[in-house]
Amino acid sequence: MVSFLIRRVFYAIIMLILVSFISFLIINLPAGDFMDQKIAELEARGDKSAVARVEDYRVRYGLDKPMLTQYWIWISNFVRGDFGLSFQFERPVKELIGQRLTLSILLSLTTLTITWLIAIPLGVYSAVNQYSIGDQVITTIAFIGIGLPGFLLALLVLYVAIVILNQDVVGLFSREFQDAPWSLAKIWDLLKHLWVPALIGAVTGTAGTIRIMRGNLLDTLGQPFIEAARARGLKSRRVIWKHAVRMAITPLVIILGTEAFPGILAGNILVEVVLGLPTIGPLYINALTTQDMFMAGTVLVLIVFLLLVGNLITDLVLAWIDPRVRLE
């Protein structure tokens, strides 16, 4: 077990190095850099001294050096916990991400909890009562949920909330709490805003999860050990929850590890952009479009890091819930 863990961590580190390098390359692929945009912007404003100042910036950020050197400087600082400076905000990437990380985690956890709380019981109901009216209704709603893009739903919610109900649903805080220090009132205000994106994320996430749960459970319910459990005189509900759901939940655990973990940073970026949330998603999109490469690279590496951590945790959880995958 310990050697398994060490091996997995070792592979994860190699993977992270590769990913960081390749993402750095890709972010640098488009012609020019952030400074070219900056120059164009400043010149358009008629700022003649801009060109000279920009060269200072280039030297300061190391943009005049060859790319491999740039990468080396960035990655060696990265390991020490210094993720570089954001060009756009002229502040450390770490600080910018740190500000938004809590909200991102909070949002994704809320979304995930709502999703599972809705999806698992509905999926179980759907499978146990296959082809019943309830199952048909759930299936129809699930397909609409799968087909409906989250950002569209977000726009619809915005329209209904702002134009019809005259409610403020944009962002995660009301204006008066935006820069206020944390207090009970601010947390309450956050919760009042949080449920909108969480619910939108849950609607789209629930749909797929219901279908997966239903399909797996149907497969499991057809297995001989279910009939055998029933023949031992167990209550139907106990057979379903103790024997069938226990077996059918494995794929959901895999999804949890491989989608939910990276989803903390890049779960529902489009929804977050539409609703203007102060989370990492919009920051990441913005960094990519403006070639704010340390910012973009850092988020990308963190996403992959979370994916790898998620995978490792998934493997451990699977070994815990299913003795067949345990290493002897």
């Binding site: 023949a231 031992r232 005189g233």
Partner: peptide, 22 residues
């Protein structure tokens, strides 16, 4: 339920899959 597994019990054709794997 008291009869099933109590008064009448059953063994099946597929011993491979008649026990819950976990």
């Amino acid at each position: 339920r008291n009869i099933r597994g109590g008064v009448i019990t059953m063994i099946f054709q597929e011993p491979m899959s008649s026990l819950t794997p976990v």
